[in-house]
Design a protein around this nucleic acid. Structure first.
Length: 414
RNA sequence: UCCGCAAUAGCUCAAUGGUAGAGCAACCGGCUGUUAACCGGUAGGUUCUAGGUUCGAGUCCUAGUUGCGGAG
């Protein structure tokens, strides 16, 4: 590491003990962008970082070795799904999540707050916690902040998330405020439960800022979660990118992220399109996770600097080029667009895997490039250059498809 | 050669004599803390041919063509 890059006023901070810590290496001069190092029991993570999602202890379709080759620094997994299957006790018996899936690098587990609240009519919330029914077999379960801390401890991830409520969009001020305050009380209970569990050495707990798209509530949330007694080693922004228009998302991000303690890692949950990652970094975010690269890969779309390549398009049938010219991923080094299109048309499993490899590599590499740009004080230029030839999907199109999907799912239930 | 059955979108098939549809395939779009190898959209037709009956025929009648089955 080049120590000359250490910014005088920040330095290594936030270390709860010898195994966890966060150091800022660089702060951008003309934006909130930062570059840092996050220390965990399973190694160092260079930030800003993109974390691929492995909900059920697997980043869908990718083997451990493929993730290592892609050089994913850390992956995500999910408390709700692993609790239901195979069960957190079983994973603990098998030596914890790292050993169970044989993943040597850091893992972050989401608390299941997002999942429980997307169960809709299958769940009932009260002050103490949430009673819900399994989407798998309808069996009844209960999550409280203390129970979730226990489950996450059994899973044994490096970074664990507080149990929160992710309010849907749109939600009115009154509801959002009530949900936020409950989330705060739960955050305090998570904090206490985690501290009393004596597992500080094994996993570190992040607090989650909520408050929907109301500035007043976001400010209140940051204030509450950063007060004296609640000194979380990291903070995330939750409840974002849940279907709101882009300008509202960017606006909320812009005024919330800079409020967070400068010396703690900041994690923007569920965000992962290239343009959103750039916007996140611009406002001082250090960590991101998203299912987007793996999900769209399985559905035949690949991320490229120009936007997307849809592998099902007939125009690729005789295209001998790789998905992305000059890309260093296994897929681009090995196979043509024509071959990938063939695999998707014939519904061969290899297509899903090759596209996933490319997309996860693309975002991992993008974050590496972004980090380098921040370190060399050229992030703003990098951002503008990138956006200049990147074609995004218009909001109206996204909204239209979201509504269609919601209607379709509703019709299927009836 | 005779008898029977069939012929509708690229494929497999719907359509009481009253506006020719579906599934799949094709083509296009979407997916943001994964209940997602998913969801949506578009295009596609001289209803085998030629006559006839009828206000009106994919549908009924006649002949032919092609295919399948049976008899010889």
């Amino acid at each position: 590491m080049d120590n000359s890059l250490l910014a005088g006023e920040v330095g290594p901070l936030g270390a709860a003990n010898g195994k966890f810590g966060f150091s800022l290496l660089k702060r951008s001069a003309n934006s909130e962008a930062r570059a840092g190092l996050l220390q965990t029991p399973h190694g160092l993570i260079e930030t800003p970082v993109f974390m691929p999602v492995g909900t059920q202890a697997t980043v869908k379709t990718l083997s451990r070795d493929e993730l290592i080759e892609i050089d994913a620094p850390i992956i995500l997994s999910n408390t709700y799904h692993l609790y239901l299957r195979p069960g957190s006790e079983l994973i603990a018996e098998m030596g914890g999540l790292h050993r169970f899936m044989n993943w040597p690098r850091p893992i972050l587990t989401d608390s299941g707050g997002f999942q429980v609240f997307s169960l809709g009519p299958l769940r009932k919330i009260d002050e103490d916690g949430v009673t819900f029914r399994s989407h798998l077999d309808g069996s009844s379960h209960r999550f409280t902040p203390e129970r979730v801390m226990q489950i996450e401890a059994e899973l044994g991830a490096d970074i664990i998330m507080a149990f929160d409520e992710c309010a849907p969009y749109p939600s009115d001020f009154t509801y959002t405020k009530a949900a936020l305050e409950r989330t705060h009380r739960w955050a305090a209970r998570c904090y206490t439960a985690h501290r009393e569990s004596g597992l500080w050495e094994k996993n570190t707990l992040f607090g989650i800022v909520q408050g929907g798209f109301y500035r007043e509530l976001r400010e209140e949330s940051v204030r509450f979660l950063t007060q004296g007694e609640l000194d979380f080693p990291g903070y995330s922004l939750g409840g974002m990118s849940v279907g709101e228009p882009k300008d509202i998302f960017y606006e909320t991000l812009a005024y919330t992220a800079p409020l967070l303690p400068v010396d703690k890692p900041r994690y923007l949950m569920g965000v992962g399109s290239p343009e959103d990652l750039l916007e996140g970094v611009r406002y001082g975010i250090d960590m991101f996770d998203c299912v987007l690269p793996t999900r769209i890969a399985r559905n035949g779309a690949c991320m490229v600097p120009q936007g997307r390549v849809n592998l099902r398009n007939a125009s690729l049938s005789r295209d001998d080029r790789p998905i992305q010219e000059g890309c260093g991923c296994y897929t681009c080094r090995t196979h043509s667009r024509a071959y990938l299109r063939h695999l998707f048309r014939t519904e061969e499993i290899l297509g899903l895997r090759l596209a996933s490899i490319h997309n996860v590599y693309f975002l991992t590499q993008l974050m590496r490039d972004i980090r380098q740009a921040v370190l060399t004080d050229s992030f703003e230029q990098f951002r503008l250059d990138f956006l200049e030839n990147f074609r995004t999907i218009p909001h109206e199109v996204r909204q239209h498809n979201r509504e269609k999907r919601a209607a379709s799912l509703k019709a299927k239930k009836n």
